[in-house]
Design a protein around this nucleic acid. Sequence first.
DNA 1: AGCTCCATACCGACCGGTTAGTCTGCCGAG
DNA 2: CTCGGCAGACTAACCGGTCGGTATGGAGCT
Lengths: 197, 197
Amino acid sequence: MARTTDGSGIPVPQRLLAAATRLFAERGYDRTSVQEIVEAAGVTKGALYHYFGSKDDLLHEVYARVLRLQQERLDAFADADAPVERRLRDAAADVVVTTIDNLDDASIFFRSMHHLSPEKDKQVRAERRRYHERFRALVEEGQREGVFSTATPADLVVDYHFGSVHHLSTWYRPDGPLTPQQVADHLADLLLRALRP
Amino acid sequence: MARTTDGSGIPVPQRLLAAATRLFAERGYDRTSVQEIVEAAGVTKGALYHYFGSKDDLLHEVYARVLRLQQERLDAFADADAPVERRLRDAAADVVVTTIDNLDDASIFFRSMHHLSPEKDKQVRAERRRYHERFRALVEEGQREGVFSTATPADLVVDYHFGSVHHLSTWYRPDGPLTPQQVADHLADLLLRALRP
DNA sequence: AGCTCCATACCGACCGGTTAGTCTGCCGAG
DNA sequence: CTCGGCAGACTAACCGGTCGGTATGGAGCT
């Protein structure tokens, strides 16, 4: 067992990351002190600065984890063997579901980007761009095939949809009337309906 | 002349508000010190605390200004004498244009809500809710008349559209290829296309 | 016209409190 | 004996907000 765990069996770095995620989402990055993070994780500052270089590093880790997950899932849906309208719909719905499943991550993502150091900000933006472009490629593919309207530039269509995803952390409440899957279906529907030729 | 102005002729309170708006949008509320604000406005702390009760007050003023403007414009469009699809379209496009025209306000609005004191937060949420409901009423009206699809709950439609408005401050750049009006037309188009029965 | 008086507008040194990050050293495992 | 893993006291830098003081212009009286 050793010193990397307490009674819970979860290693210290992960406990710190989990505590930071929750607190960043709750109070925001600046309003969360490292003291609060280490207390929530049941350790002290020594432990935090043993594993992470700075408070900023912690935030970056949250971003890296989210981006990795979303990119993997998007790639899987985009590479599937199905008509493009089906692949886009599945991808659009999936990002809604996974975003709702990780609403804390989403709040942090969209509210705290500007707290990253310039280099980390650059790195995150680059990865987001890759994600955006993969998604856009799906729209463009459908437009070339004639199954999607070309009235709106693909870039704008992607931003339109991700605006709504972004917005989820503002209004979605787990105790509301709609399940994550229902919301996802509706939002994917709206996207596909807007794209009808 | 007197002491309420410097060479620019703009009164001190407005200079403070303008400086705060720019800085809050640039670096975020917490990363902006009152010292920086007063320096940008060309005064000292004494002046700031003479006109405003707290730093928080300054933020609240920004919100109040934005909310008032948007609500007035929405009411004007919603009350117009025209078919509902036209009124919704105009309102949807207008909020995009005015948001782009005040991108700083928009960044602050969506990124710094949680920095407001509980009471002010409550007040802002209440006004936003009124705005949301006015917009939703337009969608519902069209749905009742049969000119809009009822496949998606009106609430979700409104959140879908405002997600994209919210998102503008993330990606829109004045030096990009699209004018504010062009973006507005496209986004309003997407909304109306998604609502076709 | 001149003088007094006071409200308004603003200055800037100062205070209590908080923060991210550092550093020394202990402890248990191998 | 050594070394990763961590504890926790410490520091230097700020930060929001306060407060006594100063300058200015106009109202009221004579």
